[in-house]
Amino acid sequence: MNSDFEALDRARVEQALAGLAGAFALDLRPECDSTNTQLSAAPLPQDGRVPVLAVDRQTAGRGRRGRVWQSWPGASLTFSSLWQFAPGAPVPAGLSLVVGLALAQVLEQLGVAGVQLKWPNDVLIHGRKLAGVLVELSSGQRRGIAAVVGIGINLHLPPEADIPHEGGVIDLAACLDVPPGPNELLALILTRLHGLFGVYGAAGFGALRAAWEERNAFAGLPVRIIDETREQRGNCAGVDEDGALLLDTPEGRVRVLSGEVSLRLA
């Protein structure tokens, strides 16, 4: 365990949220299997608050494409939040990209240099993975559309951590001389998500597209798109109004929708 381990504390998170504290229903625990799984099955608050489940450690954290999010106490901030959008909102088009943008803006606010976004759901620092996002639409009898947004951020990885990932990984402790604790960081991210989701729900991803493009890690670079059945190659031409990846190939420009695909440098 990290010797500077700071446990999640509801009072500290609410204090950091300040005037937005009443917008969230916080559930903070030492441990659970998967915050996305647990939150998807939990009943919704009847007062319109956004449910948030954050833990010091996940024992069965999940990432995209069936990957496991490895977790050690004090090593990462892992949490999920459930957001409801009005009928007619553009969900899920570009939703994971909005989450990545929120994380990038918080990191830049803290003074982290070299923040990049990898389509559709990773946050990189100079090409190394710092954070990941898993968005799952929530089923059940709810008005409008609901999405569970899972986020994992490396805070202080132990020396024995072995995380296979193309390009390598990095933690927040390597990016800042005095990184924030998990309580402050959780409040900062929830605050930014609250603001950006308000824009997204009203105007769609198109209103945030330019901000995402400014941080596109692979802009103009040759890339490979790999899924279970085939591989596509081309130059990354950015993203479309609905968050689809644009790929310039010898056959012309193609759109790649968010799904079970992997984006890599060619």
Rank of each mutant, 00 (worst) to 15 (best):
A23W: 02
T191C: 07
G132P: 11
V52I: 05
A60D: 08
V169R: 06
A11T: 13
D56K: 00
A211G: 15
V55S: 08
A54W: 00
E166M: 11
L193E: 03
W69D: 08
V99K: 00
N121M: 12
F5S: 07
S34Y: 08
L221R: 14
S80H: 10
D248T: 14
A18L: 04
A237Q: 13
W83C: 08
R143Q: 14
L97S: 14
Q116R: 07
P250G: 15
V13P: 01
E31C: 07
L26S: 10
R29S: 07
A60Y: 02
D171T: 12
R49T: 13
L130V: 05
P90V: 09
R224A: 14
L190S: 05
L26Y: 12
L117T: 05
P43G: 06
R64M: 08
G144W: 00
D27E: 13
R224L: 14
G234A: 06
A23M: 04
S262C: 09
A219I: 15
P250Y: 12
E214A: 15
G48K: 11
V239A: 11
A23N: 03
V223C: 15
L130C: 06
V98R: 00
R29Y: 01
L134K: 02
G48M: 11
R67P: 12
R10T: 14
D227A: 12
Q84H: 08
F197I: 03
P159I: 04
R224F: 02
P182S: 10
G132Y: 10
L257K: 01
A187E: 02
L77E: 05
L53M: 12
R255N: 03
G94N: 07
Q232E: 14
R215W: 00
V149M: 09
E160H: 15
F205T: 02
A244D: 10
P164V: 07
G111V: 03
S262W: 05
A42T: 02
P120F: 00
F79T: 00
V98M: 00
N154I: 05
L107Q: 13
E166R: 11
N154K: 02
L265T: 08
S3H: 13
L28Q: 06
G195R: 13
F197Q: 03
G152F: 05
G201I: 04
